[in-house]
Simulated assay, not measured.
Amino acid sequence: MTATTPPMSVSDALHTRHSVRAFLPTPVPRDTIEAILADAAQAPSGTNIQPWRVRVLTGAALKRVVDMALAIHNDPAQAAALEAEYSYYPLEWTSPFVDRRRKVGWDMYGLLGIGKGDKERMHAQHGRNYCFFDAPVGLIFTIDRVLTQGAWVDYGMFMQSLMLAAKARGLDTCPQAAWIHYHRQLAEMLDFAPNEMLVCGMALGHADPEAVVNRLRTERAPVAEFTTFLEA
């Protein structure tokens, strides 16, 4: 966004934001990142506890984390030993959730020309998570272990605010649950305090407009499908 570009409405930011899985190497200035985080920090939280803590990875620090994660991802023995600290997805999938999950997966693989059963290319695509999809900025989010479910709801509002603030500045993001399997490694590399728990990661940068994978758009259920109006 330039000085002559009209500001983006919240509605436009909501409708144009999507998870980007290929970024340009274009750097994001630190003051821009700080401004995005300052905007995100306006998110509400119960009794104003502000449960978020963020580590911003760029340059050599980003490369060290990427190299660590890819080395493990590409080593079957090490990858098999990974264990997430919490379950992001349900232990038992039911409809319509499993149907939506499958659709977005096959839509993405279809764009990339990855056929069913092509485990090698699926593995490589999943590994793209661990280089933050080549974004110049990786964000790692943590929370204090003393906090409970309400604070995680607050955290979601913070992350959504961050993604919208980035979009308003012409930047894109991809929130990444894939990082939760690397909580031990990240805790050691990034000096987590004993009470810190990994929430997830996020890629931040300029979307690559030529990348086929960035054509992916996920569907949303109509309002009538998830809403009940009670008027009497």
Rank of each mutant, 00 (worst) to 15 (best):
L162N: 02
L139K: 10
Q185V: 04
R184V: 13
S87K: 13
R169A: 00
E92D: 12
S87P: 08
F141N: 01
L186K: 04
V137Y: 08
E188M: 03
D75H: 04
W152D: 03
D144G: 06
R55W: 05
Y130H: 13
I114M: 09
V146E: 13
L91P: 00
Y130T: 06
L171P: 00
H183P: 02
Q125G: 02
Y88V: 14
L147Y: 14
P51K: 02
M68K: 12
Q176G: 07
R184W: 01
R101Q: 11
D172E: 14
Y182W: 11
T142S: 15
I180V: 15
G113N: 10
R128T: 13
L186F: 12
D107P: 04
F133W: 10
K167C: 11
L147V: 04
T173M: 12
I143C: 03
D134H: 14
D144M: 01
F192L: 08
V98T: 11
A177L: 10
M157W: 08
L162F: 15
G115T: 14
A187R: 08
L82R: 11
A69S: 13
G117H: 09
I114S: 06
N195I: 00
P136V: 08
Y89Q: 09
I180M: 10
I114K: 07
Y89A: 13
W93Y: 10
E188L: 10
R128A: 14
R184C: 01
V146M: 04
S161R: 04
I140L: 04
E92A: 09
A69K: 01
S95E: 15
R101T: 01
F141I: 07
P90K: 03
F158Q: 04
A81R: 14
D144K: 08
Y109H: 11
S95V: 08
H183E: 05
H73L: 02
N74Q: 12
K63V: 08
A168H: 12
G115L: 09
A84M: 10
L186T: 03
P96K: 05
Q78K: 14
D172Q: 14
T142Q: 01
V146C: 10
G59H: 10
P51D: 11
H73T: 01
L111A: 06
Q149F: 09
E196V: 04
Y86I: 00
E85T: 12
Q50T: 08
C174K: 00
V153I: 15
G156V: 10
E85P: 00
Q50P: 03
V98I: 15
G138T: 03
R102N: 14
R100D: 03
G117F: 07
A79L: 11
A81T: 11
R184T: 12
T94C: 00
M122N: 08
I140T: 06
Q185Y: 07
P90M: 06
L91C: 00
F133Y: 15
R128Q: 14
G115A: 15
V65A: 06
P96C: 05
D134L: 02
A168Q: 14
D144C: 01
E196L: 00
R101K: 14
N195G: 00
A165H: 02
P51V: 07
P90F: 01
L162Q: 02
F132T: 05
M159P: 01
P76G: 05
Y182H: 12
W93H: 03
A61C: 06
D134R: 12
A69F: 00
V98H: 09
A178S: 15
G170E: 08
R101N: 10
Y182N: 05
